[in-house]
């Protein structure tokens, strides 16, 4: 297992948002997290690279392991953790700088200055995000002038540039049109050969299409997780069937 989460509880102050969640994340696979709004899936996703540390009053207990290392252990370097476990957000959030500088940003933060090496990484990352052909002639143009779909792929390229091991995606297509959504889905299918992906999505068909495993959350609890083929054809729990077939909202 690339990541292993065991008996995870999370509290926002007095309010408990996650209850005893245990979920294995296999390497080079896509795990989709589904569930109604407020069920805790995004909260859970953010525990995987300690993004919740930034929220005041959050405390957690339980065990979150990356390659069998406890990511909540004392002395864990958060910058390095987030390099290993990158994140793509719901809305594309390019920095107000050039396309090139966006992709090179993470490597520069980590101290890389060699221009030739940076060029290689930028090209490799943009190719990896299926964006190179569209932007190779305007790498110095502002990223803010790109379409929403291109901006999201740029954000993926920015994550890939620092060679992460796990990529977290929080509803990466919810702000995109259908064509851009398809491009991102194809991209996910491609990059899972090299990365482990955990994706929150509200789109059932997207979860069915792109993921290998699906985990269904409800009211802060993990109701069930299984192979995606099983969840979408023969879920074990009635709550899961009711949710994926749209029987409650």
């Amino acid at each position: 297992m690339k990541m292993n989460i065991t008996n995870l509880n999370l509290y926002y102050g007095e309010h408990q948002a996650l209850y005893d969640v245990s979920l294995p994340v296999p390497e080079n696979h896509v795990v989709a997290l589904i569930g109604p709004s407020g069920c805790g899936k995004s909260t859970f996703l953010r525990t995987l690279n300690r993004m919740n540390d930034l929220v005041e009053g959050v405390h957690i207990d339980g065990d979150v392991r990356l390659d069998d290392e406890d990511i909540y252990a004392d002395g864990v370097d958060l910058v390095n953790l987030r390099k290993r476990v990158g994140m793509v957000f719901q809305r594309p959030n390019p920095f107000p700088m050039s396309i090139y500088d966006n992709v090179a940003y993470g490597c520069r933060v980590h101290g890389l200055k060699d221009k030739k090496r940076l060029d290689e990484i930028v090209e490799r990352s943009l190719r990896g995000a299926a964006l190179w052909d569209e932007v190779k002639d305007r790498l110095n143009a502002s990223a803010m002038g790109m379409s929403g779909g291109q901006q999201q792929r740029l954000c993926i390229a920015r994550v890939l540039a620092v060679s992460p091991e796990v990529v977290l995606m929080d509803e990466p297509c919810s702000a995109l049109d259908p064509i851009s959504t398809m491009k991102i889905e194809e991209l996910v299918a491609e990059i899972k050969k090299h990365y482990t992906i955990v994706m929150v999505t509200h789109n059932m068909q997207q979860a069915a299409r792109v993921s290998d495993y699906t985990a269904f959350f409800l009211n802060g609890r993990l109701i069930e997780h299984d192979k995606t083929d099983t969840i979408f054809t023969k879920p074990h729990m009635k709550e899961t069937e009711d949710y994926i077939t749209g029987r409650f909202g």
Binding site: M204, A208, F232, T233, K234, P235, E241, I244, T245
Partner: peptide, 8 residues
């Protein structure tokens, strides 16, 4: 309707 599970 993109049916799944029992609906499908």
């Amino acid at each position: 309707q993109q049916p799944i599970a029992h609906d499908l």
